[in-house]
Design a protein around this nucleic acid. Structure first.
Length: 818
DNA sequence: GACTGAACTATACC
DNA sequence: ACGGGTATAGTTCAGTC
């Protein structure tokens, strides 16, 4: 039978001792297809240099005889082949050792620790990754496939799987992209206790195309047509399964559902002694523990949107937290509905309606978020060639590694192994290496500024100087790239390595898709361009990351050192051309035009680019009307990573200031933001001084709302691990005392209130937002408002603190006499 | 008990 | 344990006089 096919979900099973992949996907007619296939299973045994032919034959003979009985499974080496390969760029002779079961490769590797063998590799990729590399059935690509229809009992592993048809794959051919609209179900639960399984599940909402439902066991007098009423929690769970089965989605999508919704459902199913048969084969969801819990459903791709958003978007997001409310507001322009949580026993009859709506709306938001983000997930999966389940959960480092592993073949490279825990801890104990250069600005307000920055700076540096594990040289060769670092000179071969070469390809693709996007925009191109950009920007972090297969601290250190040297040279060139550099951080340079025109500056940029080494490239970030740099709080030297720019388009770009820090109260942030904007617009401080005086007046008259004085600080670890009892720790303790469960990661909110005696410590005044109290005027003045604006006024020679203090003294004097 | 520097902590920039 | 280093700045804590 023939069909077209897009693979979505991968897992595997054993049949007669052999591994079979099972891929669930769709064809263009919307039928659900299951494909069963197998592939060569092998590991690589890399031979030591200069092992003689006869010796090799003997080793092969020995290996071919290996038979193992592991975990009750008979496994044996099927054959051994000798190949010419490369490993870390070096030519090697390697034995390809074929076996019957991927899970046994580790045991086989243990059996072949012969003297002639230098290293054993390629058995820790995971069967799915290995399969995709072998058979090139890449997730989310389209294929024409043909194969034999199989029934439930042909393979034990596919019994009773709910699909339209199941094929044993014979032939496949990649075809061009076709339209694919996945079937999605978004879900969300509400419970009586946030600890997994501790409380009852009150309701669950399901949202799909033209489908909105809330299932609950709560009986309300007034009935709502989107609410399905069941008798108890057990029935709720069963109805959820039934609806899911009927809707039969490709993706079940939640938000924080790996750690909450799905494990909760499982736990409550156990409590009710019910099987939660969500999988296409009727199986229950399975959880695996990495650093985070991960929930998998057979045949349906379970997606926790939070995890993807965190890795792919968070660095570009404005949201203060990654909570659904904030994220949905940013992406969709609409947040969650408001509902004040109470224990279900305390919810009044007329409040249930808004609870149902709240629950339903969460799923609506998740559904819409998924629609918006889907192109990005799809492109990530295609590009790194890993299934959506993995691509949507992996960190950027893992994504870089996947991309590398799936592109080793054209280099004949044998994959390097994952570091073991011993190696990891060794790497982790290595100190930091010297990183980027940050220019110390001279505080002041400047006019007519241009900003240049390097495109994919570190990625381009790695490519330009060929920096990687396989190109590293202990000693310099006559033709090598060398760089001085504080820890000594580092050298890299000029003979190109696979890592920089793959990275070069990534950067070129990024450029290509960015260009295509400019010419004819569409969401897929945008997603593709963005995915390559993220990969390019993560390659540097990858090589310095202790968990990486291709970790090399020297490569990371050299990348930073080369980039640092280059940007310093560029700054000199810019200043030599009679511009004046005012600031620079890592890969960007801000400088004064000094009377030159924008056109002259763009020509200068062109000239600069023609002189840069390798693929290094500068681009114009923008021209700015004004820019402000301030001093550090202590001393008179310029503060780094803190500035504000006013663009030609009137847009203000604020970096580092309290305005953009969530651990400052809204009043201080807003006041500073206003001051910055006024100062940039007007070029002087006069208006903003009046503005600040007015704010302070209001503060002293207690006219400021508590909402504007709330300080938010994240609890970064569990409460008992804190060595210092800081204000937010006190606030967190108070919350626990009042019965609000707090876990690490929680954003703690509090304000500083006046106390009866004069307090010695800030924390003595901590009160929760709903606690009664008078805000501490002095604290907010001295510790929030004034610090936020003080350094800005200093730039104009205005001593705002002095002005305010004078006033205070005057008032005191006056009050004494009155 | 006031003062001071170090330690701890959170958050931002690129 | 699930990219990296650089930087500012608040609050507490421990040691000093």
């Amino acid at each position: 039978m023939d069909t077209d096919f897009i693979p979505l979900d991968y897992d595997y099973f054993d049949f007669e001792g052999r591994n079979y992949i099972r891929i669930i996907g769709r064809n263009s007619k919307g039928k659900r297809v299951c494909v069963v296939d197998t592939c060569d299973i092998y590991l690589w045994a890399i031979l030591k240099d200069g092992v003689k032919k006869e010796k090799i034959s003997k080793v092969i003979e020995k290996i071919e005889k290996i038979k193992l009985d592991s975990k009750g499974r008979q496994t044996r080496v099927e054959k051994v082949e000798l190949h010419e390969k490369t490993f870390l760029g070096k030519k090697v002779k390697a034995l390809k050792v074929f076996a019957t079961n991927y899970k046994d490769l580790h045991d086989i590797a243990d059996e072949i620790g012969f003297d002639e063998i230098e290293k054993r590799r390629g058995y820790d990729l995971g069967f799915t990754t290995h399969y995709i590399i072998e058979r090139k059935i890449v997730p989310c690509n389209w294929y024409d496939i043909s194969g034999d229809l199989i029934a439930g009992n042909d393979f034990a592993g596919i019994s009773n799987i709910e699909v339209d048809f199941c094929l044993k794959l014979n032939k496949s051919k990649k075809i061009e992209e076709r339209k694919f609209e996945p079937k999605i179900v978004a879900y969300d639960i509400e419970t009586d206790d946030i600890k997994i399984g501790k409380g009852e599940i009150l309701m669950i909402s399901l949202v799909s195309d033209n489908f909105k439902k809330v299932i609950t066991w709560k009986k309300t007098k007034k009935k709502f047509d989107y609410v399905e009423y069941v008798k108890d929690e057990g029935e709720l769970l069963e109805r959820f399964s039934e609806h899911l089965k009927k809707l039969s989605p490709d993706f079940l999508v939640g938000y924080y559902s790996d750690n909450f919704d799905l494990p909760y459902l499982k736990a409550r199913a156990e409590e009710n002694k019910i099987r939660l048969s969500l999988g296409l084969d009727g199986s229950e969801p399975k959880f695996s523990r990495g650093i985070e819990l991960t929930g998998k459903i057979k045949g349906i791709v379970h997606i926790d949107l939070l995890r993807f958003i965190r890795t792919a978007y968070s660095q570009y997001m404005q949201s203060e937290t990654m909570r659904l409310d904030d994220v949905a507001t940013e992406f969709l322009g609409e947040g969650k509905k408001v509902f004040k949580f109470k224990h279900s026993s305390k919810i009044k009859e007329d409040e249930w309606e808004s609870f149902f709506e709240y629950n339903l709306h969460d799923s609506v938001l998740v559904f819409r978020l998924f629609e918006k983000i889907w192109p990005d997930i799809l492109e990530f999966s295609r590009i790194i060639q890993e299934p959506i389940f993995e691509a949507s959960r992996n960190g950027m480092s893992k994504n870089v590694e996947s991309y590398i592993l799936h592109n080793l073949e054209k280099f004949d490279e044998i994959p390097e192994k994952k570091p073991m825990s011993e190696e990891i801890s060794k790497r982790m104990h290595m100190g930091k290496y010297e990183g980027a250069f940050v220019f110390e600005p001279i505080p002041g307000i400047y006019e007519d500024i241009a900003v240049f920055d390097f495109t994919s700076c570190y990625g381009s540096t790695i490519v330009t100087y060929n920096l990687s594990k396989s190109t590293f040289l202990e000693k310099p060769e006559k033709n090598s790239y060398s760089i001085e670092t504080p820890e000594g000179k580092l050298h890299f071969s000029k003979e190109s390595g696979f890592f920089p070469e793959i990275l070069n390809d990534i950067i070129e693709k990024r450029k290509k898709y960015k260009q295509e996007l400019k010419e004819k925009p569409d969401v897929i191109k945008k997603a593709r361009s963005n995915a390559f950009k993220l990969l390019a920007n993560s390659a540097y972090g990858y090589q310095g990351f202790f968990g990486a297969r291709y970790y090399l601290r020297e490569a990371a250190a050299a990348t930073a050192a080369f980039a640092k040297k280059l940007i310093k040279e560029v700054i000199e060139t810019i200043d030599d051309a009679k511009y004046k550099t005012v600031y620079s951080d890592t890969d960007s340079i801000a400088f004064l035009l000094n009377g030159k025109t924008e056109k002259q500056t763009l020509d200068f940029l062109k000239k600069l680019n023609s002189q840069l080494p390798g693929i290094m490239e500068l681009e114009l970030e923008g021209f700015f009307r004004r820019g402000l740099w301030v001093t550090k709080r202590t001393g008179t030297i310029g503060a780094k990573k803190k500035y504000a720019l006013l663009g030609k388009d009137g847009k203000v770009k604020i970096r580092g200031f309290e305005t953009v820090r969530r651990d400052w109260c809204a009043l201080a942030r807003r006041t500073q933001d206003k001051v910055l904007r006024l100062v940039l617009d007007e070029g002087d401080e006069k208006k903003s001084l009046e503005y600040v005086k007015d704010i302070i007046k209001k503060l002293k008259q207690r006219k400021i709302s508590i909402d504007d004085l709330i300080i938010k600080t994240q609890l970064k670890k569990s409460l008992e691990d804190y060595k210092t009892v800081s204000p937010h720790v006190i606030a967190a303790r108070k919350m626990i005392d009042s019965g609000i469960p707090i876990d690490e990661g929680h954003l703690i909110e509090y304000y500083i209130a006046e106390t009866e005696e004069k307090k010695k410590l800030v924390r003595d005044g901590v009160k929760l937002p709903n606690e009664k109290g008078e805000y501490d005027i002095e604290y907010y003045l001295e510790h929030q408002i004034l610090p936020a604006v003080d350094t800005i006024f200093q730039v104009f020679g205005v001593d705002i603190k002095g002005i305010i203090e004078e006033k205070k003294k005057d008032q005191n004097r006056l009050s004494k006499w009155m």
